[in-house]
Amino acid sequence: MSETIIQLEGINFFYNGFQAIDGVSLSIGPGVYGLLGPNGAGKTTLMKVILGHLRPAAGKGRILGSDLDAGLTEVRRCIGYMPESHCLIPGMDAVTLTSYMGELSGMPRQEAIKRAHEVLYYVGLEESRYRMTDTYSSGMKQRLKLALALVHDPELMILDEPTSGMDPGGREEMLQLIVDIAAKGRMNMIISSHILADIEKTCARVLIMNHGRIVSEQQSLDFAGGDTSIFEVGIKGEPGLFLEQLQGIHAETDRRGLLRLHLPPDFPPMSLFRLALDTGVQIRHFRPSRLTLEDAFVTAIGESHAR
């Protein structure tokens, strides 16, 4: 298997004169990538180019080792696509629909039926697998779409807003499934979502798009390496005395009620614990401040606007 999953160079795409993709070049290796961006940034268009549904006006590329110019019909055999909109085929139960999709991807019929039962069980639809899919709730349709994208055990999955319309319980289960598929199945994925918390839970790397361009590539979501002098501290008890002792240290309270302390270089972080003990408070939360994905996103979009 090739080491690069997706390789794009100078891709342009126009919708009736509007430039939806503006010279995108990127190289995606194995792993799980998040694709972020404001509405109209070109995320969905880019996914459609990767799926071969849209032909770019200019540019070269290879998807799973196949050339973009040669057409990507065959490549879609190895791609599992979970579209954002609800789609189903009326008058079919889940097993029929899932095995049918497996057959269309090239599985033998018997194998496809067997596999359909497996993936439906896996996504948590085992009890409703003989029910007509048109009677499904929106959360169940979401699971069904994941099953359809999984049935042929693809090499690359493209998930567009995988948790939309799901309630908190369902959403968490969906994210766990995605994490599990990525880990156990060594699946390569591209996940687009507006919910940064979802991306943080599932993706190792993030691409941020704006105005049809890739404006930022985060190679790691572990932002710990940022600023090591800022600490998040959660205090239980009366913080007055504790804060008094911290005079000269810049402290601010964030949304969650945590203190953000900007410690000077000569201030050993561990001495905070002694300070807490002396002033009668407990430190219940302590960690070096990290950039969140939200920070990274806002910065990347802000910079791309300034340019």
Partner: peptide
């Protein structure tokens, strides 16, 4: 947390995250 805080201070331990 009372025990943990005291233990960290007494033993002079390095903590990365709580």
């Amino acid at each position: 947390f009372a025990c943990l805080n005291r233990f960290v201070v007494e033993e002079n331990l390095e903590i990365e995250e709580i």
